[in-house]
């Protein structure tokens, strides 16, 4: 088990290094000259050269990559005296801030969005998937299936606008969003996040419903479900313990990936609702062509997916007794 974990960790380090390299290559090759950007308007070729020199942009690729990589661990200095402490993902000259500190500021928002949405979609997906599976082919099952089609096909931004219009403007069930901290007004804070949560959760809930339904239907065919019935267990116990539990294993895998992906920012949802999360930061950076930020967000997303993947693998071994404990008797 420990061996397995160590092996996975080593693999993860390699993958992350490659991710760094590829990301760096992409931005190194494709990006316009950062020196030109920094230089701004009244620019002379001499000035650009000086900036390039200052930032070390004239050095060979590998040297620059090494500086970037070591910056992740020990920090680095840009030009004269712009300090970027570890882990340094880069420095945004446009907003005069290190990318890392920008992320630290915005990460809580993305985390809140992701956690709230995940709770919603897990609850909705598992419950409606289970209901669909045990009523397979009946009206309620077909009704839920219809809903999942709708949920999967409606684009986020459309749903967001429609929900805002209906819930806030027409029905006035929700107050107009105001920027408040959780500590100041928890209720308003909660209501602010409610719509982003719902909007983000709908698509996921739909696919989790389908996944749960399919898995539970499969599990219900298992011989051990017949055994459970033959023991005289109540249907609720049979469904929960003997059908839903085995169906959960693959769902955990997908959930880990989805959730990790969301931590890297829900671009559309955050932008539509004006939430200052990582996703909004990315979209702002793209419109402003703030390359260090774009690159930082890309790296963060890749990092989260890789780490999420590993966590899922480890959890996967932990939740399946057949993997966790080898045959011994």
């Amino acid at each position: 088990m420990t061996r397995q974990v160590l092996k996975r960790l080593a693999g993860m380090v390699v993958v992350l290094l490659l991710v760094c390299l590829f990301t760096y290559v992409i931005f190194f090759v494709l990006s316009p000259d950062p020196a030109v950007q920094i230089c701004g308007k009244n620019c002379t070729p001499a000035k650009i050269d000086q900036i390039r020199d200052n930032l070390g942009l004239n050095r060979p690729f590998w040297a620059q990559f090494w500086t970037f990589l070591s910056g992740l661990f020990v920090g680095r200095t840009y030009g004269e005296g712009i300090q970027c402490s570890a882990p340094c993902l880069g420095y945004s000259f446009q907003s005069s801030q290190s990318v890392t500190s920008m992320m630290v500021q915005r990460f809580p928002v993305s985390l809140t969005v992701a956690v709230g949405a995940a709770v919603l979609w897990l609850l909705a997906g598992l419950v409606s998937g289970l209901i669909g599976a045990i009523n397979e082919g009946k009206f309620i099952d077909r009704f839920i299936s219809g809903l999942t089609f709708a949920g999967m096909s409606i684009p986020n931004y459309v749903l967001a606008l429609v929900l805002q219009f209906v819930l806030v403007v027409t029905l006035r069930w929700l107050p107009f969003p105001q920027a408040v901290a959780f500590g100041d007004d928890p209720v308003q804070w909660f209501l602010n996040f409610l719509m982003p949560w719902i909007v983000l959760a709908v698509g996921y809930a739909a696919s989790y419903t389908r996944l749960t339904r399919a898995n539970v239907i499969e599990a219900l065919q298992e011989n051990y479900v017949r055994t459970a019935r033959s023991k005289g267990l109540r249907p609720s116990v049979v469904w929960r313990r003997h059908a839903l539990r085995p169906a959960l294993t693959p769902i955990v895998t997908i959930f880990g990936m989805d959730f990790a992906g969301l931590l890297g920012g829900a671009v559309i949802t955050e932008t539509v609702f004006g939430l200052n999360g990582i996703g909004k930061m990315a979209s702002d950076a793209i419109t402003k062509n703030d390359q260090p930020v774009i690159m930082g967000v890309t790296l963060l997303a890749a990092f989260l997916v890789v780490v999420g993947n590993m966590v899922v693998d480890l959890v996967y071994t932990a939740i399946d007794p057949r993997v966790r404990i080898g045959a011994s008797a």
Partner: peptide, 9 residues
């Protein structure tokens, strides 16, 4: 084997 649930002791 298939008649016992693998997830419970």
């Amino acid at each position: 084997l298939s008649c016992l649930n693998p997830y419970y002791t």
